[in-house]
Design a protein around this nucleic acid. Structure first.
Length: 424
DNA sequence: TCTGGGGTCCTAGGACCC
DNA sequence: TCTGGGGTCCTAGGACCC
């Protein structure tokens, strides 16, 4: 059996590239895309990076800089990005027998069995075709583990010489790549782990790989950190996940466009979040028995602060939106406090179980087959006709005072429910 | 680098029990 | 009442990612 080979294909400045696709006039302009509620930057083109704007920078802090430099700023337009993402993934799927869609802008490909000597060329072909057929520029990294493919991809983005493709399939290349990669840039090593590793003299990926005392790594970073080290050594610890792993918790939270003082309005927002999470729950054929609900004031504003939290235990496992909303309502009544300006709220579903397990139970409190088929029908209608075509009255009407600010939203170039125009 | 958005998983350590 | 041993379950908060 031949050695496994992984490729990671990652879209360059994905959200910005999506906006640019429909605005060719912005070809060499600095572009930035803001998170929900126009909070902070989540995607930046190299031109914007050069101006010193970082991921996570709050927009208001660099507003002047952006104005001065004619930066094109957009509110996130997720339905557009999802739509283009699907096109990219479909194209990628034609290049490998097995593919894991890792996030909206990244996919791992199984290239096991390909001749390693031909993979640079093949990766360039992938890059070329994706760009030709979707208009989205991508980078490709190849390695013997996912972590190495990820590392290769980082270098492909950084190095001009690489032309967007880096393959780490021989020891010499790999050693050099590991040495060039700062420890904090390794996938899975965040800030906390970075400082712990630096404290014991590990500064780059090569130091980490060659560090002999695995027990110490286990102690410092737990098994997750050790797993990363082993992946850098070329030992597979993370496999391709073709079928998405079922989530153990599902969350939805939003910052409000305008503060909320009214319990009725808060209930309406919570109903929407329940609707959103319950749909995800059903999509993975699960039910849950616990809902956590929170609402909070803005910690950045000089107003009376309050963090309200309630959790409700459902009678039996459920994925029934209507039942869950009614439980959530009583929780909101408990947590709401008059006189505070709530700026953010959310829900989290936990105690998630497989539906198949639930169905074996004879408890009356679990969802009936009738309820299940009602929910399935609603999901189908919303899938065909668009989100929110059918929803609980508790969710309110479309034009909500509390909904997100999106002051820089691009027009609706595409919808999720029709074929995209051909991009040339 | 006080990182003003959203989401998920992991684990240390407490509660409880034998 | 204090102490020790050992196990399971649960949760808050840490950590990481996009």
């Amino acid at each position: 059996m031949s050695k496994k080979i992984f490729a990671l294909v990652d879209c360059n400045s994905f959200y910005c590239s999506c906006e640019r696709l429909f605005r060719p006039d912005l070809k060499s302009t600095a572009i930035g895309v803001l998170s929900n509620n126009d909070g902070c930057f989540v995607s930046r083109t190299p031109e914007l990076k050069k101006l010193g704007v970082k991921t996570g920078d709050p927009y208001f802090k660099v507003k002047d800089l952006c104005k001065k430099n004619n930066v094109a700023v957009f509110s996130a337009n997720f339905s557009l990005y999802t739509n283009l993402s699907d096109r990219v993934m479909k194209t990628l799927a034609t290049f490998a027998p097995r593919i894991e869609v890792y996030s909206v802008d990244e996919a791992f490909l199984d290239l096991t069995g390909f001749n390693p000597d031909e993979l640079v060329e093949y990766s360039r072909e992938i890059k070329r075709i994706v760009e030709r057929d979707t208009g989205i520029p991508v980078s490709v990294g190849v390695g013997y583990t996912k972590t190495l493919a990820k590392l290769a991809n980082n270098l492909a983005k950084k190095s001009k010489k690489a032309g967007g493709v880096v393959c780490l399939l021989n020891d010499k290349h790999t050693e050099a790549a590991l040495e060039r990669t700062q420890i904090g840039d390794v996938w899975g090593i965040g800030r906390a782990s970075e400082s712990k590793l630096k404290a014991i003299g590990i500064h780059n990926a090569k130091d980490f790989k060659e560090y002999k005392n695995s027990k110490n790594i286990l102690k410092l970073l737990t098994k997750v950190g050790l797993q990363t080290k082993e992946e850098l050594e070329g030992n597979i610890r993370l496999n391709l996940e073709i079928v998405p792993i079922k989530k153990k918790e599902i969350m939805c939270s939003r910052t409000f466009g305008t503060p909320v003082f009214d319990m009725k309005v808060l209930r309406e927002s919570i109903s929407n979040y329940i609707t959103n999470t319950a749909e995800k729950l059903r999509k993975q054929d699960s039910s849950c028995s616990k809902i956590e609900i929170f609402a909070r004031t803005s910690p950045y504003k000089d107003v009376p602060q309050h963090f309200a939290f309630e959790q409700v235990i459902l009678s039996g496992d459920s994925s029934n939106t209507l039942k869950m909303i009614s439980y959530a309502f009583s929780a909101v009544e408990k947590l709401f406090k008059e006189g505070y300006e709530f700026k953010k709220a959310g829900v989290k579903l936990t105690n998630i179980v497989n539906d198949t397990e639930g169905q074996l139970s004879l408890l009356d409190e679990n969802d009936s087959p009738r309820t299940r088929s009602l929910m399935k029908t609603i999901d189908l209608i919303n899938k065909i006709n668009g989100p929110g075509t059918i929803k609980s009255a508790a969710c309110g009407v479309n034009d909500k005072a509390w909904s997100m600010s999106r002051n820089f939203k691009s027009p609706r170039y595409v919808t999720g429910y029709t074929e995209l125009p051909k991009v040339t």
